[in-house]
């Protein structure tokens, strides 16, 4: 048995195809980015090595880069402050729905499986100044004065994006918290109830504190997905108006393919990856206060 399991040739044959593909599509591109990021390449023709000047320019002179990070922060904050509490509340309600629990769980998750192309276009329709649902709704309840070109106004566009991302990702958050609640042993709740705990006490003192490990996971997932947000923005506003809804992924795309600044775009890519790695490590460390075993 041991001989079969330490057969070097077999190990190589099992690992190599996947690993080579992974290295070629993920790792080599990162090194290429690091290389082109230190040049002034414009996509075609000659280019020169410019050292770290791209990085300096991005970090110290590029307001759009920082605005992209700020938007990611805003999106994260909105997700954590609005989406997650609602998800926790509904997850608790779900556990009381008995045999209908699965139906509700399925319904809440449906938006998450739909192509972002569809959801982005759909919500663009909802925010549409002429036939959009939102303006119709405002008019219907007598607030016609608030009618608006929601995606065309830099002040409201970012909030539209936030609403769409929260709507689509709601099922994920709900599912995480729901499975976290399922993982808490039933007898804990029953014991508390026999001791006379009310519903509010049961949840505020026992269930929600026991959800902490799942919250840690959900927070890390939320932060990284918000930072990586691109498709919704790309399709709804393409970062506009006036870069007010810009996110890093979309900014790279715009810089490279619209402005032909391939060197600069690659430098942003490198910083983007570094940011994600640092953030994940820091978050994992910062939130590592695990609750003990049940």
């Amino acid at each position: 048995m041991h001989k079969v399991l330490s057969d070097k040739k077999a190990i190589f044959l099992l690992i190599a195809p996947g690993l080579i593909l992974f290295v070629f599509m993920i790792c080599i591109p990162i090194f290429m980015s690091a290389y082109y990021g230190s040049t002034d390449w414009s996509g075609i023709g000659q280019y020169q090595y410019v050292g770290l000047s791209n990085y300096k320019e991005i970090l110290f002179e590029d307001p759009v880069f920082w605005n992209s990070l700020w938007n990611a922060l805003l999106l994260t904050a909105a997700t954590l402050v609005i989406q997650h509490p609602i998800a926790i509340l509904l997850a608790i309600f779900l556990t009381h729905c008995g045999k209908y629990e699965k139906i509700f769980r399925t319904i809440f998750f449906i938006p998450a499986v739909i192509s972002i192309v569809v959801t982005a276009k759909l919500w663009s329709g909802i925010f549409h100044p002429n036939y959009g649902l939102l303006n119709k709704f405002l008019e219907g309840i007598g607030l016609g004065v608030l009618k608006h070109d929601w995606l065309g106004d830099p002040n409201t566009a970012i909030w539209c994006i936030i609403v769409v991302v929260m709507w689509q990702g709601f099922g994920y958050a709900l599912l995480l918290y729901y499975s976290g609640l399922q993982g808490i042993p039933k007898d804990l709740g029953e014991a508390a109830r026999i001791d006379g705990a009310t519903h509010t006490q049961l949840y505020s003192r026992i269930m929600i504190p026991l959800l902490a490990p799942m919250m840690r996971v959900a927070i890390i997932i939320a932060v990284t997905t918000c930072l990586k947000q691109m498709e919704t923005v790309f399709l709804m506003t393409n970062g506009g108006p006036a870069n007010s809804t810009q996110f890093l992924g979309n900014y790279i795309y715009k810089v490279a393919f619209s402005s032909s600044l391939y060197g600069y775009g690659n430098a942003i890519s490198v910083l983007f990856i570094v940011f994600c790695l640092i953030l994940t490590v820091v978050l994992n460390k910062a939130l590592k206060k695990d609750v003990g075993e049940f």
């Binding site: 690992i15 996947g18 690993l19 992974f22 599509m25 993920i26 080599i28 591109p29 990162i30 290429m32 980015s33 082109y36 990284t224 930072l227 990586k228 691109m230 890093l248 992924g249 979309n250 790279i252 795309y253 490279a256 391939y262 775009g265 690659n266 890519s269 490198v270 983007f272 990856i273 994600c276 790695l277 994940t280």
Partner: peptide, 24 residues
């Protein structure tokens, strides 16, 4: 080592590979 290496792929933002992959 290799397991950890591949798992790093879950952290890397996929849109950052878009541009270099295009060049590749």
């Amino acid at each position: 080592f290799f397991l950890g290496f591949v798992m790093l792929g879950m952290i890397i933002p996929i849109h950052a590979t878009l541009l270099p992959n295009f060049i590749l």
